[in-house]
Design a protein around this nucleic acid. Sequence first.
DNA 1: CGCTACGTTGAGAACAATCAACCCCGGTGG
DNA 2: CCACCGGGGTTGATTGTTCTCAACGTAGCG
Lengths: 272, 272
Amino acid sequence: MDKTQIIPPSTGKGSRLPDAAARPNPLLSPCGPCKIRHLAICSALSHDELQYLAAIVSTVTLDADQPLFDEGQPAQHVYIVTSGAMRLYKLLPDGRRQVTGFLFVSDFLGLANGENYAYGAEAVADAELCRFRRGELDALVDRFPRMEKQLFGLASNELAVAQEQMLVLGRKSARERIASFLLMLQERASRRQPKSDLVAVPMNRADVGDYLGLSTETVSRTFTELKLANVIALDKPTKVRILNQQLIQDIAAGIRAPAPGASGQYAPITRH
Amino acid sequence: MDKTQIIPPSTGKGSRLPDAAARPNPLLSPCGPCKIRHLAICSALSHDELQYLAAIVSTVTLDADQPLFDEGQPAQHVYIVTSGAMRLYKLLPDGRRQVTGFLFVSDFLGLANGENYAYGAEAVADAELCRFRRGELDALVDRFPRMEKQLFGLASNELAVAQEQMLVLGRKSARERIASFLLMLQERASRRQPKSDLVAVPMNRADVGDYLGLSTETVSRTFTELKLANVIALDKPTKVRILNQQLIQDIAAGIRAPAPGASGQYAPITRH
DNA sequence: CGCTACGTTGAGAACAATCAACCCCGGTGG
DNA sequence: CCACCGGGGTTGATTGTTCTCAACGTAGCG
């Protein structure tokens, strides 16, 4: 079942930054046909610069739930998700888990302050990632300062997201958390396809719970509650339709009274 | 009571990066005698480079509880805390507050992804800060790439801290949160003075509660509980002595059973 | 066609929030 | 110098949201 594959770049040279003479043919490079090149940090690079990046990239394939690395492991690589979804998490000694983030296509992964990863990473669903040796990428960053800026922006953005999540975890009710979570999924999906009221939830209830600081049961109950209140529709557990965008935004922001009426419903809205 | 003061640098030139001819006398520059130069991002700079930084710095003085800027305000400046302490926070429309972090001497402040601050900043106690116009600092960063690396490292570190806080907020009990909080204060104080079992808690119970996702009452009760369990001593509410370092670490990590015995005490230890 | 994962629902317990009173201390004015 | 005042802190009683334990439903897969 373990099908982790490390595919060395056909044009790579091993661990040293290639010089000009070793430039790979861009048409043969793994980045040339890359469909998400314009989304990831690669977008900071010119066609020319991209060749250097292509020379040090390899590919990793993961099955659902397979680990990419564990918390505390030496931080040797950074990654870009090219398909599927990942979760980052931290554990307490007794097994309690906090999912600190979910990653989707084009997301960057592997920022580490010290020598080791401060979190583990696992595939939520079958996933593929581009992999870069940290040392090689560092050398590239030194050569192309624009990449440093890009990475800095990335980290700043992550930080803002993390602070928003602190607000969710510290001060929002279960209903507000689930609403915030669905809006986050919707927003992030909209970066790659037109915004839709259909939100895919690829992770299971335990993942959602560990992300939002709730038990799986509370996650489930809260989905049901929002369904009964006509805020969302649930075809399958992994497929949510937002029925009232304004309402779910208000709930996420803590504006609407959380009190479900006698019928547990918000004012009904016109259905599709 | 409002004593905010913006002190323009005596050697500055306004909004443009000074050229070599305009270099300030290092002995007159505000950074020359700076006691925390070796702690802050300034440590990335040579004596020479520091002069450029000194040319664009100004000073801000705040009374306790006075705001430095509000959430959503245009992010025009970045700061370094030179005395006192600050809190960063986010608000919900109904007034619920999440303190996303506390800042102490030498901490950097003002990272913003977009045009505006994503959080507010207020003084916990009377504070002084060095202030830099964003645009001027950006120009300096372009000139001295080492600063960019320094800032990137700073952001990465902040991110790791934020993820740790997510674990606290999402998965730890009140007792574990308070223990983690005290250890955080201890660790951060130890960066500037020898590690001590005496921990200063300059912020009030409401601040602590809003940082840990607890009510002020629960914060107070939990301090009392740890005191009764001989884990800490409380001379004043703002002065905590850690009586059993190993025990408080275990509690913070969730290792020790949270169940207070009939007497509500952990095994007594030798007192000082 | 049953097994197993995951999801949902239910009942009760537990932890923290809320509402409320009181204490303690520092500052101020008589 | 002392009484009053006010804010922060503590403690108490009660409520309430979420967790835990448990059973059951459901869908995909061998």
